[in-house]
């Protein structure tokens, strides 16, 4: 087998299992990581971050920039901005949470009638995106 024949040059041809170091599961922190979960670097991830290679480093960089801008960012947005497959992104984010480099910033569990009313009001008030 000649790996160099299949060797990726850019992210777009990296196989998912390579990106995640061969891990198929999402690790200990993975259960609460969904596409809509908001995440941000911890103090460790921001200030004392270890040298991280490739995608893990890119994720921390992207989220660090977003944090400086005051922007919230979800796993799905990380996936889109970095061009990483969504399931791999969930796995990588879960690993970074496990490693104490990322914080989970949002909960997705509680949604009561008042919350739904807020969502309804927000949708009703939308004016549509400038095209």
């Amino acid at each position: 087998m000649r790996f160099e024949d299949e060797a990726p040059v850019g992210n777009e041809v990296v196989r998912s299992f390579l990106v995640t170091g061969g891990k198929a599961s999402t690790g200990r922190g993975g259960e609460e990581i969904s596409l809509e979960t908001l995440i941000a670097p911890t103090h460790l991830g921001r200030v004392e971050r270890p040298e991280l290679k490739f995608e893990r480093g890119q994720i921390l960089d992207l989220l660090g920039d977003a944090q400086e801008q005051g922007d919230e960012m979800s796993v799905a947005e990380v996936s889109a901005h970095l061009g990483l497959p969504m399931l791999s992104t969930i796995t990588l984010v879960a690993q970074l949470v496990d490693d104490g480099l990322l914080d989970v910033e949002s909960t997705t569990t509680t949604m009561d009638l008042d919350d739904l009313q807020l969502i309804r009001d927000a949708i009703a008030g939308l004016r549509g995106r400038e095209k």
Binding site: S79, G83, P85, T89, I123, L126, R129
Partner: peptide, 14 residues
């Protein structure tokens, strides 16, 4: 796209 406040983003899966 009609209701999103950002231009729709694209994520992919293999």
């Amino acid at each position: 796209g009609e209701v999103s406040e950002i231009p729709p983003l694209r994520t992919e899966e293999h």
